[in-house]
Amino acid sequence: MAFPVLDRITGCEAGRRIEATVTLSQSEEYLADHFPSFPIMPGVIMLEALVEAAAWLMRLGGEGGGIFALREARAVRYGRVVRPGDELRVEAAIAGDRDEDPSFTGAGSVGGERAVAGKFVLRRVPLDGLDGAARASLEAFLEERRAALLGRPAGGG
């Protein structure tokens, strides 16, 4: 499973900040390798949770249904480990623009203890290569994800 990472969007102030959660499942396949005797969420998956939250902040803020890639990350620090069953709560806030690409600060914690914090810049991925059918299927996927993350039926408000 692993991707996409987030389970729920728990708060969003359009154009400003977003909050979301992910609970690390016992059955997550990558835990068999990371690590066999000490299963914990990889640090880069925590960063991915921040990136995903920021991308939804853009989409929910009226930036369209586009998709975003990580262009840059800076000063991403790790604190406590995230173990199976832990709920990681993440928050991303818009920090400005870098050459027209949106930049963010983000942080995640478990039970109030900091697990990750950092700064990052996203870049919009061009969809020029997609034909109409592929674009429709991508939009349907994003709509389904949006509904699941917000806990509302697809097509609803």
Binding site: M1, A2, F3, P4, V44, I45, L47, E48, V51, I67, A69, L70, V125, L127, G129, L130, A134, R135, S137, L138, F141
Partner: peptide, 13 residues
């Protein structure tokens, strides 16, 4: 699963 129809490796990976 990352983005259907436009497969690329998530930069975090």
């Amino acid at each position: 699963r990352h983005f259907p129809g436009i497969p690329f490796v998530p930069q975090t990976l």
